[in-house]
Design a protein around this nucleic acid. Sequence first.
DNA 1: TAAAAAATAACCAATGTCAGGTATTGTCTA
DNA 2: TAGACAATACCTGACATTGGTTATTTTTTA
Lengths: 209, 209
Amino acid sequence: MIRVLIADDHQMFIDGLKSLLERESGIEITGSANNGTQALECIEAQKPDVVLLDINMPEMNGINTTALIRKKYPAVKVLILTMYKTKGFINGLTRTGAAGYILKNTSHSELMEAIRTVAAGGTFFSKEVAETLSDKKPRFEVHSDASLSKREIEIIREIAKGLTTKQIAEKLFISYYTIETHRKNILSKLQLTNTAEVILYASQSGLLD
Amino acid sequence: MIRVLIADDHQMFIDGLKSLLERESGIEITGSANNGTQALECIEAQKPDVVLLDINMPEMNGINTTALIRKKYPAVKVLILTMYKTKGFINGLTRTGAAGYILKNTSHSELMEAIRTVAAGGTFFSKEVAETLSDKKPRFEVHSDASLSKREIEIIREIAKGLTTKQIAEKLFISYYTIETHRKNILSKLQLTNTAEVILYASQSGLLD
DNA sequence: TAAAAAATAACCAATGTCAGGTATTGTCTA
DNA sequence: TAGACAATACCTGACATTGGTTATTTTTTA
């Protein structure tokens, strides 16, 4: 019996998935959570074998949650379930120790295969995800990590509000050059080239909620 | 018996919802579609009573699909199912004739209530959506995406991919100056001042994908 | 407590965007 | 069929971003 915990911010998705998985033999849904913090509490209480984790959740994002799960409960397998195949996320998550990464547009049978594979100690990546992984080439040692710092996230939020580098510097009472540096580090960490891509990434990954 | 069609670009979501709704008495799932075009084909073939429509789908977006369904099949009720509660989008859809608008984080019971209400000829809006509708201060003005031209939306999508004005001009085989003009018109129509705001708006209103 | 990471600051050249215009042609529709 | 809208194109000056660097101070973590 594989014990599974579902963490997703959309209750409707949880309900549907639960109904779907309950029909499968050999799988038991221990519970569900709507964010990372809740997920950790559920793991503590329920000790599942596999956690189906959405990365687009409020309060605590997927990377941080994965890192905490791996640290506190090394026996629990993390299977990332998401709509996005953002390079930064995939790299960050696999490095953090996710056992698998599948997209929400994958089929029922592939989902089952993924759950069984990671429960058995293996790794599972959707075809599209695997392709993204294979063409990664981290250019900078220090800044190739997808985990953005608090300050960087704060600055992305100001950019999303439409503020310019100069305006952000004034608002945060720090130098224009510092903001410039942060912006450059953000682009570098996410392996992007301009603001438009950063805002799209931030919006889609729930960084702005 | 209420005949329901599900349209969503995530197969996993469809599978889950299907499994969930099949357990309900009085509801029959006639089929599913992964985009707007497919949804229209399914309606023609299956004549459902209610269409559960995700607005964040590729190929054809929710507003266009809703408009076409209302025009060709006035008897079919459209129940919008989405993650977003963006003002401009909600207004656009209700104006187009959607019978209901519920968020993906709503509960199972609320979903059932929504389906039954719209099937009976009523309207149903999630609490949060209703609040957004009654909100006097819209985040984005009435100049919303209804007034953006096809070309403008196309250009916004290219900007979101990270292309510069020059690159877009080359890709679309038109002048750099034309793209500049379109960008200025986009900013003016949406009453925004820079690219970051445009991308956030586009992303949150489901203009992309 | 030593090492790592984050936050700070600076400079400059190249490139890109924005805010003002003006103007022509094609297409839809009241 | 006239008027509105969409798409096209052009120009300029001002302003903003990006890439390539280096470097110090502060904070966090192992």
